[in-house]
Structure formats: structure tokens, C-alpha cells
Simulated assay, not measured.
Amino acid sequence: MTALLDVRDLVAGYDGGRVLNEVGLHVDAGEAVTLLGRNGVGKTTLVHTIMGFVRPDRGTIRLDGRDVAREPASAVARAGVAIVPQGRRVFAPLTVEEHLQIADRHRGRGEWTRERVYETMPRLAERRDHLAAQLSGGEQQLLAIGRALLGNPRLLLLDEPSEGLAPVIVDRIRDLLLSLISGGIAVLLVEQNLRLALTLASRVLVMSKGTIVHESSVADFRSDAARARTLLGVT
């Protein structure tokens, strides 16, 4: 069976400096995979390269067998990939509704519409006329997710979705993401919150120094706490 996302021998970086070193991974249709690792090992660079924000020096990024490694982000989005970036990156002067209107102009074919986003995230509906600058961190994260969903993605790239959020808000984000995964959206999740990551995913990847150094099921990863601590540099 062909993986939805199949990355092989990926080399990429910035200004001639290498960050990713022969990275390989796959995500199957409807699967949730979490990517763990210390800060600075290349996790964000990897999701940015998959999304088309960074042009790789070498390697392939196949979506349903089609290599998109050197295509622009707009083409990757049309192929069914969306990103919820680290730090949310919403635009302070725009309202919730304006954010979603802009995303709606480029909406992919599928069931996700502004109306469905509001139904799924009623807090956004309540705040639709508020500026992004007036939203809480959790509300901004919901907006970033809603904006991504309007692309009707088959694969959602999530970069640190719990960053800076209170535990009760993280639980709400978790429930939302679980519902999206159960609805068939595949997820590649970069996350420092180990509890959240292992709740959402079925498979674990660990990155170190720009390459994948470990792959296992969540169950196997949980079963060997000493190995997990070593891989993640936790004492």
C-alpha cells in the first residue's frame, strides 16, 4: 500500500547550512504520527520542507506517490496538505471572520466550510467579529486550526499546538484533534508535551541532529521509559 506521505533521503537547510540529514518517514492515510526530539534538532525545518516553505537540496517528498519536493507551498496545499504553524501566526489586525474568509478563497474541495468550522469550534463563532489580537492564546490556536481545515486537507502538519497554553486549554485542543483524526485526517504532530503527543498518535518518531533515530508504536515507546528518556535527553 502506498503511504499518503512518503519522505526519503531528505536533505535541507538554510543559507548553505544543513539541518536535515537524509530524513526518511511515512504517514499513512488517516494515521497520526508524532515527531519528538529536543529543541533545535530540525523538527520545524522538516514540516516546513514538507509544506514547501523550504526547498530541499536532495530527496523526495511523495504524496500519494507524486513527488512534491520542489513544488511551491500552494501546490502542496492543493495536493491535500495544510499546516498549523508554531506560534499560530494569526494576523493581529484581522477579525476571526476575515481570517476564515481569506482561507475560504483557497478552499480545497471537501466538507470543511466556514459554517462547519464555526459548528465544530463554537468559541470561534462567538468571537467571529473580534480581532485576532483580542483573542486568547487558545482561541488563536483554534483559529489557526480552523484556517487550516478550510484547505480540506488529507494531511495536517501541526507544529507545537500546545505551546504556551494552559492545561485546560490543551485538553480542549486534544479533544478537537482527536475528533479530526477519527474523522480520517492524517496528522504529523511536532510536540513537546509528551502526554498530548502520545494520546493523539499511534506511532512515534524521534529526531536527533537532523535525522530520524527511532521509530516505534506508542505502546512500545511507553513500555520502555528508560529508552524514551535517553532518546529525548530527559534525566
Rank of each mutant, 00 (worst) to 15 (best):
V76L: 00
S208T: 05
R174Y: 08
G80S: 05
S217K: 09
V68K: 02
L194D: 01
I102T: 05
T49N: 02
I50P: 01
Y14M: 08
D6K: 02
R123M: 08
D67F: 01
N39A: 07
V7G: 06
T235S: 14
G151C: 07
D129H: 11
L178D: 13
L194P: 03
E119T: 10
L157M: 02
V170I: 13
P56Y: 10
D175H: 13
K43V: 04
M51V: 07
A166N: 06
A201C: 08
L100N: 07
L149N: 10
R123W: 01
Q86H: 01
G137R: 04
A125R: 10
T34H: 00
D171H: 14
F53I: 12
D159P: 00
L180E: 03
I145W: 06
T95K: 01
R89Y: 00
P85V: 00
A133H: 09
N21Q: 12
L100I: 01
Q101D: 15
A125I: 03
E163I: 07
D64Y: 08
E119K: 09
L94Q: 05
R58W: 11
G138C: 09
A133E: 11
A79D: 12
L124R: 00
N152V: 11
S216D: 14
L189D: 14
D224A: 13
R229M: 14
E126L: 04
G151H: 10
T49C: 02
E139L: 02
M207V: 14
Q86T: 00
L177K: 08
L200F: 15
E97S: 12
V218L: 07
L177N: 12
S136Y: 05
P93L: 04
V7R: 05
G183E: 05
R174F: 13
G210T: 02
L177Q: 11
A69I: 02
A132C: 06
D15R: 15
I102W: 09
L25H: 03
A82P: 09
R88D: 09
G42A: 07
L196M: 15
V117N: 00
L158D: 09
L231V: 00
Y14A: 10
L188P: 07
L232Y: 14
Y118W: 11
N39Q: 10
K43W: 01
A77F: 07
A125W: 08
H26N: 13
R8I: 04
V96M: 07
A197S: 11
L157A: 03
L94V: 12
D28T: 11
R18G: 10
V19N: 02
A225V: 15
H214D: 08
R55H: 13
R128D: 01
P153I: 00
G30C: 08
H26E: 13
T230H: 15
V19H: 00
G151P: 04
I50E: 07
R107K: 05
